[in-house]
């Protein structure tokens, strides 16, 4: 059992069953104070169930969850004032303004002098103070949700898919807010579908599938340990190039732009492919060689089809 007080969150052998189905299956992890922890997983992986158990909304079937040294099943009303939660699909009272919403949640937490102006400034909603919730755009609603999660100046902030459904601009604006929270030393527990988001924000990433943790570590560690290969992209290629690469024993794929992507174990393989293409007289207009990103690691660990495409590389290694 993890007992070190430096941990904001300690989860040991957590399991949650719904009518015989296992939503969370014996997972354990710990989050240090001031750390940003991201839980990644496909739909139905058990991310939200895990977060809701941590938020004290749901009760675990078995296992132990400690928040700030307190058991979530026994100290709910001691834990709640010390955490902030942005639930998935945050929503609020339609006809209540931004400012009134923050005042309302401050009152729920019995805050005597809530810094409503400061919160609105933090999430860049000061000019929307008098706008009713129903008239806010999706991105502004989510930002209000973040501000609501912060009204009690929590030590841990839980963010369940904070940028789902937002356009790229709104998503980046949200990231700015989350980076500010990170700078201020808040412990953030994040669930997301977006690898870029996890890579940018998280100190530790845990990848879950079917209720189980498949991999955990910093984004760099996960990439290093799970994707030790190169990704080569050949742009605007002749149709013959695909066959050439395939005949060499690699597993090329077309992407949505018609470019060929191929994962290679060694840098020598890049040279061999380029030579083979040149000798055949085929042409290409561009070449991109890069290290894999977190998305590739995620797909490798959670997508069975993708797993097969990289299996050959690992055998070669």
């Amino acid at each position: 059992m993890i007992q070190n007080s430096k941990y904001a969150i300690e989860v040991n052998n957590l399991t949650k069953h719904y009518k015989g189905l296992s939503a969370v299956d014996n997972i354990s992890f710990a989050v240090e104070r001031g750390e940003v922890f991201a839980l990644l997983g496909p739909n139905g992986a058990g991310k939200t169930t895990t977060v809701e158990i941590l938020n004290t909304i749901r009760k675990p079937t078995s296992g132990k969850v400690m928040l700030l040294g307190m058991d979530v099943t026994q100290k709910k009303y001691d834990i709640i004032p010390r955490i902030g939660v942005l639930p998935q699909g945050f929503s609020s009272f339609d006809r209540i303004t931004v400012k009134e919403t923050l005042q309302y949640y401050s009152r729920l937490f019995c805050r005597k002098k809530p810094d409503i102006q400061g919160l609105m400034k933090l999430v860049n909603l000061k000019d929307k103070a008098a706008v009713q919730y129903k008239n806010l755009s999706g991105g502004l609603k989510q930002r209000l949700g973040i501000a609501v999660a912060l009204v009690n100046d929590p030590e841990i902030v839980f963010l369940d898919e904070p940028t789902t459904g937002l356009d790229p601009l709104a998503r980046r604006a949200m990231w700015e807010v989350l980076l500010d929270l990170k700078k201020n030393g808040k412990t953030l527990f994040l669930t997301t579908h977006y690898m870029e988001e996890a890579e940018l924000l998280a100190d530790t990433v845990s990848i879950v599938k079917k209720g189980k943790i498949f991999a955990m570590g910093s984004p760099g560690e996960l990439i290093e340990s799970n994707a030790d290969y190169l990704v080569v992209m050949l742009k605007s290629v002749d149709e013959t190039v695909f066959d050439i690469v395939e005949k060499m024993g690699f597993a090329p794929e077309y992407d949505s732009h018609g470019h060929i992507t191929v994962r290679l174990a060694h840098t020598d393989d890049v040279r061999r492919i380029l030579n083979a293409v040149r000798e055949s007289g085929a042409s290409f207009t561009g070449l991109d060689v890069r290290k894999p990103n977190l998305e590739e690691v995620f797909l490798k660990l959670t997508d069975d089809t993708f797993l097969k495409s990289v299996a050959g590389i690992e055998e070669a290694q």
Binding site: N55, T56, I57, Y77, I80, P81, I83, V85, P87, Q88, G89, F90, S91, S92, F93, Y105, L108, F109, C110, V148
Partner: peptide, 13 residues
């Protein structure tokens, strides 16, 4: 249905 009750469940109410 809107999820406001879920949010309220994470407050001291």
């Amino acid at each position: 249905q809107k999820g406001v009750i879920r949010k309220l469940s994470t407050t001291p109410i």
